[in-house]
């Protein structure tokens, strides 16, 4: 058994929280730059330029790209040959978030109870997804997610007879209804299959894949491409003020499902779709 002390996990998460929030990933950055050329709206081009300038400034000054530095969503894959020592893993993860949000001057946006609504003051607890895998490594993905876009996400419990057209129409419906609210240009994560909670997790996980990448499953990759074209014909445009850049990328993940169902989750994200990963 390989031993890993929890302090390593805390340090790693602290660093990833700060990096993810202050430095836009290259895939999104270059996708924004590339979209300038095709953007038909002059206001749209102006907005895209401001968004790019903002990302440059944030990186230079190590300042949050967006003030909504999100709830920290953390995926941890733990190899079954790893023995974690030195304390509670969940406490160590939350300690990393606490330190990252404090030392990185990131906004504390978490309330401890959804109805009583008192800010916890340190952005904890994080939303943590644990998975056990083979091997002796720990893979950590930190994906801070703002709520302007999170609030526009939906789950559609379709019937098998709705088929692929039903899935495509659900994705387009969700993007259309989101309109200007989630800070377009958006990035869209889609989960198909599983059950109610599995499809939502798949949609979230789909957002970890770089914009511009394709699914390994050919028909899913075709659907990603087709939906991207359809979404960008909606006219919503940057910030919803009209234009041809509505969505930068649509990533789809699929999983087995029940004979009676076809669940589809659409997790809308913004042009500040963030994540960072590391392996310990």
């Amino acid at each position: 058994m390989r031993e890993v002390n929890v302090s390593k996990i805390t340090d790693c998460i602290k660093r990833l929280c700060i990096d993810a929030n202050c430095s836009l990933n290259d895939d999104i950055y270059f996708s924004l730059k590339n979209s300038l050329e095709g953007e038909k709206s002059p206001i749209g081009r102006d907005i895209l330029n401001q968004i790019i300038k903002n990302a440059d400034l944030a990186r230079k000054k190590c300042k949050p790209i967006c003030q909504d530095t999100g709830m920290a969503v953390i995926f941890i894959e733990i190899g079954q040959d790893v023995h974690i020592t030195g304390g509670s893993l969940t406490d160590a993860v939350n300690e990393g978030v606490r330190q990252g949000y404090k030392d990185g001057f990131l906004r504390k946006s978490v309330v401890g109870d959804p109805l009583i609504r008192v800010n916890t003051g340190d952005n904890t607890p994080a939303v943590i997804h644990y998975n056990i895998t083979e091997g002796d490594k720990i893979k950590i993905d930190v994906a801070p997610k703002g709520f302007g876009s999170e609030n526009m996400s939906k789950i559609y419990m379709l019937k098998p007879s709705d088929g692929i057209e039903g899935v495509k129409n659900s994705v387009i419906d969700c993007i259309k209804k989101a309109g200007p609210n989630p800070c377009p240009p958006m990035v869209v994560g889609v989960g198909i299959g599983g059950n109610f909670e599995k499809c939502a997790c798949l949609a979230k996980k789909a957002l970890l894949r770089p914009v511009g990448s394709s699914s390994d499953i050919p028909y899913i990759a075709d659907m990603e491409r087709e939906l991207l074209v359809r979404a960008n014909k909606l006219g919503i445009g940057p910030q919803g003020l009209g234009g041809s850049t509505t969505v930068l990328g649509i990533n789809i993940e699929a999983f087995a499902t029940h004979i009676a169902g076809l669940p589809v989750a659409v997790n809308i994200s913004c042009h500040v779709t963030r994540h960072r990963s590391a392996v310990i």
Binding site: I47, N54, L57, K63, I65, G148, G179, C183
Partner: peptide, 29 residues
């Protein structure tokens, strides 16, 4: 940033108010 409902736009018309959009996600700038 983002849409407003009819009750808000009705009040804007009745009393005289304006809704200005800033670029969402450009917080550093």
């Amino acid at each position: 940033k983002g849409a407003r409902n009819k009750a808000v736009t009705d009040a804007m018309k009745k009393y005289g108010a304006v809704y200005i959009g800033a670029v969402g996600g450009a917080g550093a700038l």
